[in-house]
Structure formats: structure tokens, C-alpha cells
Write a protein that binds this DNA or RNA. Structure first.
Lengths: 212, 212, 212, 212
DNA sequence: TATGAATGAGCTTTCATTCAT
DNA sequence: GATGAATGAAAGCTCATTCAT
């Protein structure tokens, strides 16, 4: 196996490891063992512990970018997209398994903690994170434009605000799930999106405007 | 100065320190210096580095609980409350200064990182965190009930879902601010809340239902 | 309670504590707690941790001296004395309880370890230990002289050698009990002493000289 | 030099060091310096200070087992064996030098202290110690059987009791030498064994049964 | 390309001792 | 007489990193 492939493999395995192990507390011995290689091998491919972590984090951000892009690229009704948002863990599992990461990301919490740890340690990653969320919001706006053109949603919607609303609510719901261990978002998330949908839908299905 | 007061002072000073210094990366030497005591003194009051961190985290959660409770206890129009939400950093600054914590919490990001680090390290804190957010949402529902009784908002609103929506969006907006360093929430947050308000307000100020 | 009495009490309690706790591993905090006083109080009466230990050890040697002297002072047949030797733990228990030391010395092992630790730490104690064993052997010889005068044992016995034999065998049996946790001495000790007795008794009860 | 050899070397050197230095009082810095390696190297091979001590102690017990076995394996008259017992320090010196331990064990006291400290600290070593002394006694009994078959000692001797007597007296004599610093055993030991020999010898050289 | 023994700086922790009260 | 908060020196231990092989 060539050098490039080995390095990639190590990055993915490290990502897998850091999904469930705190970077600062893990020793390079632990990491090497988890990766099935020796410490020396790690120093062949990376400039040290920090470098390995950063490489793994960059790879995570790349993967997230791909996952988000893929989730938004499928052409389908906007409503269907919104309904799918909280199937994130299902999506993560499928995506993880596809690239050999197993079920390390079966909990979004792991992704969130890992991302936050990486950003805190390498503030320069903020740029990349920013790009991910900016493009996510841009893609949402694009989706809404298409949906408006198709007559799915009203054309006078403040699409930028709604895109931000969806993104922030989505992240917030996952964050609350991460810090309280209650997956309220599985139940309440769809209800909230239904309300948002009602607000932006082209034809109000309930002329009286009542909720619930 | 008695033992109890000193311990409390150390906890608050540690909280202050951890607001801007990563716990795992800080050595006990750094911490002791920042606290103006010797390492031995820390061990006199705490069972070690971790114990000090946990004590500081518990104190933070207690403070957050108090801040939230106070913010929700003032009797005023629901709309005014919503408009105030994103003045969090102002509120934090005032509250911090009051208890001698200076401006360590001038950025909510610091609070968020600290809280997440503490929860990851001490999962048992989840219970306390859960209590904070649960009571926050309950207080929101109570506020809405009062508002409905006063005729401010529509009585048929799914208050539970709206409370969750506000909480999650709020946290998500702050989280996005933390990981991207863009304070979009200062601009977009109020716009989103305006849209939510329009949806639940007793009298629709825009009979045509358009946004923006 | 006066100062002198308190000091004596502390020494005895420390002895009690060191009977089951290794001196080097015990912290002064542990000791103070076990003694029911504060560290400061210990420094009132002693010059520090080592000084306390030495005082306790000296007290132990004094007690041992007394126990040995008492055991040898009772006027009775020499054979009876030998038969009693391995009732040491019974004797220790009685003696300990009498001076308020409870059952800390229910195992001779504890006495042995404590004495060895003290001698190793304070080689000057060797003199006192030497005196104890020397006087034990001298008392044995005196007992044998009396016994010979009474016609209990043969007058041509090499009393010094027998005294040494008894002493060394006795200590050796207890040592083996301490390092192997097998109390063989309870069974085999009396058998060995019976053989020794047969050798020194005035009238050979078994003219054929067979053992067992 | 391979790992296994280095570990063994460290264990033997540690044994050498602990023969004359109290384990609890010695710092790991002292030990590392004496072993000619860094503290890190010690942690490379052992799980800490205690682990190193235990490894050294186990090695000592192994060596003792070997020494005892060797001393008892030579086929010669039982009397000659008994006469040799108190040449232990000579034997130790020879054996120590053979395996590169120099003259650390020129005093049996050192062996005794080390063994007692190890047993107190690691009670699980008792099993191994027990095996050593049990096999010592068994070997003594076997020697006596052979001697009886050869007509050296009387066949009706209670061999088990005599084996215990010899072992306990031997250990006791060495213990007294250790705690009083008087090597009485060098003079009195042989005299006592002479008396024992007279008791068990096949032909009583002194028909009148007198001692000395 | 890969190893793992060895390092040493710096970490967390312990604790006998002091001293203001 | 007695306290216990505070100290600081030194302990045991960790670990990223190096380097001879």
C-alpha cells in the first residue's frame, strides 16, 4: 500500500478514534494502538500529535461539506427536504459506513464535540467551518428560489432569514440534544418545521391560520 | 477569612480563568498563579485539578440558572422579552460584573465552550444542564400563557413547540456565532423572532401574511 | 487532663495505629485523624512525625520488656513455662487490652513488623532491643538454674545454649508464621519443645530415647 | 540489547539497590540514578515504583528458591549439611557474585528486611514465600529419610518436627542477628545443632546423654 | 518504511512543617 | 494549649518526541 493511501487511512481512523476519545486526554500511545500502528509510523506521516489531529479535523470538515452538499443537491420538493432534516443520524450512519468509519458518528454529539475541540485548538479552521455553513445557507436559498419558481413556496419570503432560521434551529436542536441527552428534536423538530413550512408555503392549507 | 468563603472565591476565580483558558491545556501551575494561591492551597480545598474544574463548572451552571430565571421573571410584554433575547452578552456582562467576575463572559462563546467541556468531562452534569433548559422552556410556556390571557398572543398557539423553537434557535444562533466567529445572530436573530412573533401574535399586523 | 498524660495517651494510640498501618506510607493527616487530634496538637507534644514514631516504638519496646519480664517472673515448673510459650497471642491480647490498646496486637506479626520498621529507621533502638532479648535469655538461664536446683532438669545442661535455642526457635517460629501466614507453630511448636524438654529433663521418661 | 534482557537487568539491579536502601524512603530519582537509567526508562518497563519493587522482590524469592534448592540438592551426610547451615552468608556471597549482584547480600539481614518489606507491601507474595519454606522443609525431610536409610540417623525420628525445628531455629537465629546486630548464631548456632544432632543421630556418641 | 527503547521536561499530587490566630 | 489554612519542596508519573537500528 502506497504512502498516500496509508496517510488517508490513518486520518480516517484517527477521525474515528477522536469521535469518541478526547484529543487532549488521549496519549499518542493510545492513538497509535487504536490506529494499529506504532508511534514511529505516525511520525512518518504527520508532524506530531497536533498535526494528526488537525489532519483528521480537516478531513471531518471535508466530509461534512460533502454530506451537506449531497443532502442539498437532490432535486425534490422543499417540503420533503425539511422533513428529512432530523434524520441526520441516519444519514450520518450511512455516510460513515460508506467510507469505512463504522458507527462512530451514530451520535451527532460526537461530531459536534470533535468540531468544537478542533476549532478551539486551531482557530484557522474557522474559515473552513464558516464556508460550510455559509454554503449550506446559500444552498438553502437556492433551493427556496427553485421552490418559489415551482410555486411550492411564496415568492415574497425573506429567504435569507428563513435559511438562517432553519440552520440555526437545526444546530440548536442538535446542541440541546448534545448537552441534555434528550432527543427532543426527534419529536419537536418536525413540529417546528411544520409551522415554518406553513408560514412560507405557497398555499395556506389552513385558511384560519391556527397551529397544532 | 474563613474556609467556606475562600473556597467560593477560588471557585469563582477558577471560573473566570477557565472562561478564557482551556482546562486541559492549562497546568495547575498556571491556574494557581492565576488564582493567586499556591498549588498546595488548591489541594487544601479541592481534590485535584479535575475537582476544581468541576466545582467551577457547577458554579457556572448555578449562575446560568440564576441568570435565566431572573431574565424570565420580569413581568412585561412577551414581545419585549423576545426582542431582548439577543442582548445576552450585555446581560452577561452586567451579571458577571455584579459577582466580581469582570468581563470574562463578554462573549457567550466562552460560556458555551466551558459548558461543553465540563459536560463532556463530567457527564453527570447533564442532569443539571437539563434542569436549566427544561425550566427555561417551562418559564417560556408560562410567559406565553400569561401573554395569551392578556390578549397579546393567540390562545391556540402550540406553546410547547414555540418554546422549544425559541430555545433551540437561540442556542443554535449562538453556537453558529461560536464556531464561525460571525455574529449574524445580532442582525438576523431579531428578524427571525419578528417572523415568529407575527405567527403567534393575537392580531396579525399584516393581514396579507407576507414576510419581510 | 494534664500534658504528660496526653502525651502518653498519644504515644499509645500511635502505637495502636502503627500496629496496622505502615509508618512511611501513613501521612500525618491520617495519623492525626486516627489519634483524634489535629496535626498541630501532635507538634505540641512531639518534634514531628519521626519523633512520634520513635516515641511509640520506644513505648512498644518498654511494653515488650514488661511482658517478657512478667511472663518469666511467675514461679512455676520450667516445663509449664515452655508449654505456655506459644500462647503468646493470648498473652498479647490480655496485655494489650489492659493498657487500652484493644486487639491491635492480636497478631504477633504486627508487633514484629513494627519492631523491625522502628529498628531500621532508628538503629539506636538496637541497644534497647538487644537488652530485651539478652535479659530474656538471662532470665531463661536463671529459670533453668532454679529448675536444676529443684531437680526438674539435669544440672549438666548447657543452659546458655538451650536458652538461645528456645529464644531463637520461638522467634523463628513466629517469623515463619508472619511471612507465610501459616500458624504451624501452634501445632509443631509444642512438639519441638517436648523434644527439647525430653533432652534436658532430669529423668528421661522414655528410657529407649525414641521420639514422637 | 533486547527488551527482555534489559528488564531482567533492571530487576536485578533494583534488587541490588533495595538490598541496602529502604524502598519507601528511596525516591524514584535515587533508584533511577542507581540503575543508571532515567525515570522514563523505568516506566517503560514497569508500571511504577511499586511495580519495580515487586518485580525485584519476586526475583529475590526466585533466587532464594534456587539457592535453597541447590544447598539441599548436594548428596552428602546429613550432619555435614547441618554444620553448613550457618555459612549462609558465605553461600549468599558466592551466589550473589555469580549472578552479578556483587556483595549486596553479604549480610542476611538485608535479605530478611527486603523480604519482609515486600511481603508486607504485597501480601500476595506470601504464597511464593510459603512455597519456598514448605519445599525447604520437605527437602529436609527427604534428606533425613535418605540419612535414615543410610543408617546416619535413627529411623524413628519425628522428621517433620525436626525439619520444622531446624527451619524455625535457623530463621530465628538470623532474625535475632538482624534485630540485635549480634551474630550470636555464628557461635551458638552450631552448638545448638550439635545438640539436635546428638538427639537424632543413629548411634549416641555419649551414652550418658550429657550435654556440652 | 518502520520500529520501539529511551529521553527529559513538565505534569499532577503529596505532605511534613510552619504560623497567625 | 490548640487549631487548620497555607506553604513549598519534592515526590511519582506522563508523554510527545527523538533516534539508532
Amino acid at each position: 500500500m502506497g504512502s498516500r493511501e496509508t496517510k488517508t487511512r490513518l486520518e480516517l481512523q484517527a477521525l474515528l478514534f477522536f469521535a469518541t476519545n478526547d484529543f487532549e486526554r488521549a496519549s499518542l500511545n493510545d492513538i497509535a494502538e487504536a490506529l494499529g500502528v506504532t508511534k514511529g509510523a505516525i511520525y512518518h506521516y504527520f508532524n506530531g500529535k497536533d498535526d494528526l489531529f488537525k489532519a483528521a479535523a480537516v478531513r471531518l470538515l471535508d466530509l461534512m461539506h460533502g454530506w451537506f452538499a449531497q443532502a442539498l443537491s437532490v432535486d425534490r420538493p422543499f417540503k420533503a427536504f425539511m422533513e428529512d432534516l432530523f434524520r441526520i443520524e441516519e444519514m450520518l450512519l450511512t455516510a460513515s459506513a460508506e467510507i469505512g468509519l463504522g458507527n462512530a458518528f451514530s451520535e451527532y454529539r460526537n461530531v459536534l464535540y470533535l468540531m468544537l475541540a478542533a476549532i478551539k485548538k486551531f482557530p484557522e479552521l474557522n474559515e473552513q467551518v464558516d464556508r460550510i455553513y455559509t454554503s449550506f445557507r446559500k444552498a438553502l436559498v437556492a433551493l427556496m428560489r427553485t421552490a418559489a419558481a415551482r410555486g411550492e413556496i411564496r415568492p415574497d419570503v425573506d429567504m435569507e432569514a428563513v435559511a438562517y432560521e432553519i440552520t440555526a434551529f437545526y444546530e440548536g436542536a442538535l446542541l440541546l440534544g448534545a448537552i441534555t441527552y434528550r432527543k427532543d428534536y426527534k419529536v419537536l423538530g418536525p413540529r417546528v418545521y411544520a409551522a415554518i413550512w406553513k408560514r412560507i408555503a405557497a398555499e395556506d392549507p389552513d385558511p384560519k391560520g391556527g397551529e397544532g
